[in-house]
Every structure is written in C-alpha cells, then in structure tokens.
Design a protein around this nucleic acid. Structure first.
Length: 110
DNA sequence: CGGCTGACTCTGG
DNA sequence: TCCAGAGCCAGCC
C-alpha cells in the first residue's frame, strides 16, 4: 500500500482530522488537542470546527472526541452533548460525578 | 475577494 | 476547583 507517504496533506484539513477520529477505537476517547497534535500544523479549535461541520450522519465517531478536561463541550442547544455522553456510555465509557471521564480508563493512545 | 462563524486550549486570580 | 479573557485558522456564502 502506498499509504505511508504524506499525501494526506493533499486533502483538506478537515478530512484529515476525520481520518484521525476514525482511528479511535470504541470505548476510547481523545481530546481535541490530541487530535490537533496528531494531525500536526493545526490548532485544537480547527478540530472543534471540523467536528461542527460533521454533524450526525457522518462516518466519523465525533462522539469520542472531547475536550482536554475530559468533559464534553456544549454544542448548539446542548442536545448533541447529551447524545454524545449517552453514546460514550453505551461503549463502556464511564463518567465521573462531575461529568468527566478518566483518561486512565478511556484515554486514547494512553 | 471580503466577512462571518465556530464542539478549544492556556494562563491568571 | 471554578471563572474569565485572549489567541488562533480554515471553510463557507
């Protein structure tokens, strides 16, 4: 496979971010900063903006992407937030009383 | 081509 | 531990 090149940079930054999120295994979560670091050359905000452009119906598990605090950010009316938390719990992700998750349990690449 | 929007992170108090 | 302000860039109309 001629995939180990850097042709990824040929794709839009957004699509590149989606590729990273798709690599997140079930029961695991990653932070925006982590994704941005992996993509390289992009800021955590770019990741968040890319997620907002996704919405539901995408092949990207945006639900596994949370902020560095281990919490879920509030989007739009907050409906997506509740959905995200529910989806993560369905995968086995546990939330703290403060609504945070333990990176030691569900941290991706940890 | 110009302007607007947006799901973050960091630091200080 | 919680709150507030500032910095940042790409995509879309």
């Amino acid at each position: 496979m001629q995939m180990n090149g850097k042709k990824s940079e040929k794709r839009p930054l957004y699509e590149r971010i989606y590729s990273i999120v798709r690599q997140i295994p079930p029961g695991r979560v990653a932070s925006y900063g982590q994704i941005a670091r992996i993509v390289g050359g992009c800021t955590p905000r770019m990741v968040g903006y890319a997620m907002s452009a996704l919405r539901s119906g995408s092949d990207v598990p945006w639900q596994r992407v949370i902020n560095s605090q281990g919490k879920i950010s509030v989007h739009g009316d907050g409906i997506g937030t509740s959905l995200q938390r529910q989806l993560l719990e369905e995968e086995g992700v546990k939330f703290n009383a403060s609504g945070r998750v333990d990176w030691d349990e569900v941290g991706w690449l940890v």
